[in-house]
Write a protein that binds this DNA or RNA. Structure first.
Length: 269
DNA sequence: AGGACGCCCTGTTCGC
DNA sequence: TGCGAACAGGGCGTCC
């Protein structure tokens, strides 16, 4: 599920459950989630050794990533792929086979990096900056002010939806929230970025902040968003909450976009 | 730089 | 009911 709002929700959950407790044990049940250590291959043993005896300090979110500093100053980073989440619990009976990385603290509680589809990853880097640079991740979209947002978009000419979703350009927006942002801005997902004038970029910026913050307030559950938002209707055979026309779904930039042909205009440069 | 693909892995859903 | 195909809110690499 993880776009920025989900990552923010996990960050809060992580902060509320997992800080400043010594780590007793780390189990990895699927090597595929092992990302890298300073850019090099990360083994299950190396991860366990690196975490053993350490404590996490307050989490930070950058785009869709959750980062935390260990006692020794290094950064532990989680990315949730398409199906990842966090789960903190006490009983061994609650351990799931999808808990790809299971961290056990001295108090006996577990923090599970739960990731059924195994497309998530965990990383170890000397610090946050080294990781973000290595991955070439753009600025976090919620901390990107209007000036920065405007400057970045003004220099682009690709289709607006893939542009918003490109984590190297700005970090945090994924497939479904890009649909909502474009719906609220009344922009067709294939509109070239250079077809937007500054006023339209401002609208897009405002919608981005509004939508992501609303999603965080709804605990990143799109179904809890207001009924005049697109997302509660973002399934086949649903209609536009604004005009009642059937919604269109179409592959844009390799992902399925939902939008209203009637309400969302495709501007030309 | 931008866009189209193919691919990564696995669980769920849909169609026959 | 059963089985395989298609799809899923992630990202990466390659080719043109």
């Amino acid at each position: 599920m993880p776009e920025l709002p989900n990552a923010e929700t996990y960050k809060r959950y992580f902060d509320a459950t997992s800080l400043y407790q010594p780590i007793r044990e780390v189990d990895v049940n699927h090597d595929y989630v092992l990302g890298s250590e300073d850019g090099d291959e990360l083994s299950a043993d190396a991860l366990a050794d690196a975490l053993h005896g350490q404590e996490f300090s307050t989490g930070r979110r950058h785009g869709k990533y959750l980062l935390s500093t260990l006692s020794d100053g290094r950064s532990f980073i989680m990315h949730f792929g398409m199906s990842g989440s966090l789960n903190y619990f006490k009983s061994d009976d609650d351990i799931s086979k999808f808990d790809r990385v299971l961290i056990t603290f001295n108090n006996g509680y577990h923090l599970a990096f739960h990731c059924p589809r195994v497309l998530g990853n965990v990383y170890l880097f000397d610090n946050d900056e080294a990781f973000l640079t290595h991955k070439n991740i753009g600025p976090d979209v919620l901390r990107l002010g209007w000036e920065g947002f405007n400057e970045i978009l003004a220099a682009r000419r690709g289709m607006i939806k893939p542009t918003l979703m490109d984590q190297h350009i700005m970090a945090g927006i994924g497939n479904i929230y890009s649909d909502e942002i474009l719906f609220q801005t009344r922009l067709h997902p294939e509109t070239p970025a250079n077809a937007l004038d500054e006023a339209k970029r401002r609208e897009l910026f405002n919608a981005t902040q509004r939508v992501l913050n609303a999603a965080i307030d709804c605990d990143a559950n799109p179904k809890k968003l207001p009924n005049d938002y697109l997302l509660p209707h973002r399934i086949d055979d649903e209609v536009c909450p604004s005009c009642g026309e059937p919604l269109t779904s179409k592959e844009v930039g390799g992902r399925t976009a939902y939008f209203c042909e009637r309400e969302q205009e495709r501007l030309e440069p």
